[in-house]
Design a protein around this nucleic acid. Structure first.
Lengths: 156, 156
DNA sequence: ACGCTGAGTAGGAACTTCCAACTCAGTGGT
DNA sequence: ACCACTGAGTTGGAAGTTCCTACTCAGCGT
């Protein structure tokens, strides 16, 4: 998204996030890294069927945005190559993937069941995304109100 | 995103969701509708600075996807016009906006503070998105494990 | 009849994406 | 030393999108 952020929207964290995440393929690359643990150029290419020049561009942007870390690796008897692993910021996108995936499961069902299952690492019990109050108590979504914060500024 | 869903990805609800949400401007339109209550062509146009032909296309897709409802309205002494209001599925995108916005506030700070504030409609207390278990108890994000579900199928 | 307003269409330039073929560097085999 | 192989890209041109500006079109009020 070339200049999605202009004077009126640059303060909005949604717009700024979409600047990097909103490009075609970006979130799918993050999905592959998160759900499948992929990290290599050829793996992303094969899994997504993305054109190599576009993949180069997306990986570069994700690295620049601090979502992926470009790091060298060496497989036994191979020369050094590079791979792209999720940073802390990249792993922090899990709720974004979770929210999109939960919405899609309900509102654009595939008939094959959910795409991703979120579970408690220790108990194996399913978990889901929800709004909680300061004490960590769940709140029904329709009791949540959104108001524009100081960072939101769009002509009006 | 023309054919982001091919044989290997069509079962994935993330890919299917991005087919409609991943287009440039789509989520920003939803943001305007959700946070600012906008519903009219000219309002979206002015707020986002989007080209009218692209806006027409996005609104049409959002309507087709069941996120917006195209409905006639009539202002006093004006002729009938159309507006686009969020459907139930559209309002259900709140967690998606919340997740993106929370990520952006932390990982792409603007220096102006958060873009959106989520509060309990009744108490006015701030709320946030979190993973919860079946009983609605919060779970730290790093204790959540994601595994591909039946709907996830991508070459591997 | 005339101008105003909101919701769009039209035309062409600029930019992105797609596709297929090609490069480039090190490694292992001979 | 030479050759084939492999992963990570580049390159060039066609196809598809987005941008920008100007224009249309329908009904209302005057």
């Amino acid at each position: 998204m070339p200049q999605i952020t202009d004077a009126t929207t640059e303060r909005c964290s949604i717009a700024r996030s979409l600047e990097v995440l909103g490009h075609k393929w970006s979130l799918l690359i993050v999905r592959e890294a998160t759900l499948r643990g992929r990290s290599r150029f050829a793996d992303f290419r094969a899994a997504l069927g993305i054109a190599p020049d576009v993949l180069t561009d997306r990986l570069t942007r994700l690295v620049d945005a601090g979502i992926l870390d470009r790091r060298p690796y060496r497989e036994a008897g191979e020369r050094e190559r590079v791979e792209y692993v999720l940073t802390e910021a990249g792993r922090a996108l899990l709720p974004v993937l979770g929210a999109i995936s939960a919405w899609g499961d309900v509102h654009r069902p595939s008939g094959f069941g959910p795409a991703a299952l979120y579970t408690d690492r220790r108990t194996g019990e399913p978990v889901r995304l929800a709004f909680v109050d300061a004490d960590g108590r769940e709140l029904p979504a329709d009791e949540v109100e959104v108001v524009a914060g100081p960072g939101f500024l769009s002509g009006d």
